[in-house]
Amino acid sequence: MFVVCKTRVANEKVDRLLNGYSAYAETEELIRLVKRRIYSNNLDIYEDQTDIGCWFIPRN
């Protein structure tokens, strides 16, 4: 069985954003964790909320 650490996944997605790449989050919990880290890092991010997840796109 493969166990996924959600905080690690959220940190990896925010690292992608910090490097100028977009990131996608599938679950409500992961979206919440990524948003919290975006807010704490004071990033300017465009959020595209869909029915199946959320895209986070850095604004430059």
Rank of each mutant, 00 (worst) to 15 (best):
I38Q: 01
N42G: 11
D48F: 08
R37H: 07
V34M: 01
E12G: 02
Y24T: 14
M1T: 13
A10Y: 00
F56E: 07
P58Y: 14
F56D: 09
V3G: 05
K35G: 04
E26R: 13
N41L: 04
K35A: 05
C5W: 10
C5L: 13
G20Y: 14
S40P: 03
L33C: 07
T27R: 05
F2C: 03
W55T: 04
I38T: 02
V34I: 06
S22M: 03
I31K: 01
G20E: 13
P58I: 06
E26D: 11
V34F: 00
L18R: 11
R8V: 13
A25P: 05
I45V: 15
I31T: 09
R32E: 04
I31W: 00
I52F: 15
W55R: 06
I52D: 10
R36V: 09
V9L: 06
N11D: 15
A25N: 02
D15H: 10
E47F: 02
K13M: 11
Y24C: 08
C54H: 01
S22F: 11
K6W: 00
D51C: 09
E26T: 13
N41T: 06
V34H: 01
R59F: 07
P58D: 09
Y46S: 11
E47G: 08
I31S: 02
R32C: 06
T27P: 12
C5I: 13
D48A: 10
D44E: 13
G20R: 10
D15P: 08
T50Y: 05
V3I: 15
E26P: 10
C5P: 07
G53I: 07
S22C: 06
I31L: 05
K6V: 00
D15G: 04
F2L: 12
N41D: 03
T50I: 07
E26K: 14
D48N: 14
G53A: 03
R32K: 08
G53V: 06
V14M: 04
V3F: 11
A23L: 08
R32D: 00
A25I: 02
V4P: 00
N19M: 15
N19C: 11
E26S: 12
E47N: 02
R8C: 12
I45P: 06
I52V: 09
N60V: 13
R37I: 08
F2W: 14
L30V: 02
T27M: 07
I52A: 04
K35W: 02
I38Y: 05
I38A: 07
Y21N: 03
K6D: 00
I52Q: 04
L17K: 06
K6M: 00
V34R: 03
N19Q: 15
K35M: 09
